[in-house]
Amino acid sequence: MTVIATTAIPDNVRGALSRWLTEPMPGLYVGTLSAKVRDELWGVVAKSVGDGAAVLAFPDSSEQRFAIRTAGQRRRAPIDFDGLTLIAFNPTETDIETVTV
């Protein structure tokens, strides 16, 4: 199963995603795709994300049995920690101001 979650992407990209995946709620796309179709769709999303953001989760042969890709600016970023994908929080500007004051 492939899951793509998007925020503020262009309508034409939403249309392309909805041709291949089901959209159970706005910005969330779910379905079963071949690796080739998944990679092609993700390429389109990543190139056109602009000020928005997108996350792709799909099956993988890793220990966790899934992989994550992201595009756009997000406060959360996946990092590899000894073969496991963990999520790191990037500080916001208000967090930085609080620490430096």
Score class of each variant (00 low, 15 high):
39 D>P: 04
63 E>M: 13
61 S>I: 14
17 L>M: 00
19 R>C: 12
53 A>P: 05
67 A>Y: 03
18 S>F: 04
14 R>H: 06
42 W>K: 08
22 T>S: 08
49 V>E: 00
16 A>Y: 01
51 D>P: 07
45 V>I: 09
7 T>V: 14
44 V>F: 01
6 T>F: 02
23 E>R: 14
10 P>E: 07
44 V>R: 14
61 S>Q: 13
63 E>G: 06
30 V>Q: 04
71 A>D: 09
23 E>G: 01
61 S>Y: 06
55 V>F: 03
6 T>Q: 10
19 R>K: 13
56 L>Q: 06
29 Y>L: 08
57 A>R: 08
17 L>V: 01
66 F>T: 02
19 R>I: 12
28 L>V: 04
11 D>F: 08
9 I>P: 00
42 W>G: 13
56 L>D: 07
27 G>P: 12
25 M>K: 05
45 V>D: 03
10 P>N: 07
54 A>R: 01
22 T>H: 05
64 Q>Y: 10
23 E>N: 08
61 S>K: 15
12 N>P: 09
8 A>H: 15
43 G>I: 09
6 T>M: 06
29 Y>K: 02
33 L>K: 08
46 A>I: 04
66 F>R: 10
22 T>C: 02
42 W>L: 05
53 A>Q: 14
69 R>E: 12
51 D>W: 07
59 P>Q: 14
33 L>G: 01
37 V>K: 11
69 R>H: 15
21 L>Y: 01
24 P>L: 02
58 F>D: 09
34 S>T: 10
52 G>K: 06
66 F>M: 09
26 P>C: 09
31 G>Q: 07
44 V>Y: 03
67 A>M: 10
50 G>F: 05
37 V>L: 13
7 T>M: 12
24 P>Y: 02
8 A>P: 10
53 A>K: 14
22 T>Q: 11
8 A>W: 11
21 L>R: 00
28 L>D: 00
6 T>S: 13
27 G>R: 11
15 G>Q: 13
14 R>F: 02
51 D>E: 15
8 A>C: 05
20 W>S: 15
51 D>N: 12
55 V>E: 04
39 D>G: 05
47 K>W: 06
49 V>I: 05
67 A>I: 05
11 D>A: 07
21 L>G: 00
48 S>Y: 11
39 D>N: 14
6 T>P: 05
13 V>S: 03
44 V>E: 10
43 G>S: 12
18 S>G: 08
44 V>T: 12
20 W>C: 11
14 R>M: 06
10 P>W: 01
8 A>L: 15
46 A>S: 15
57 A>I: 09
68 I>P: 09
38 R>N: 05
47 K>L: 09
30 V>M: 06
62 S>W: 09
14 R>Q: 10
71 A>T: 01
27 G>H: 08
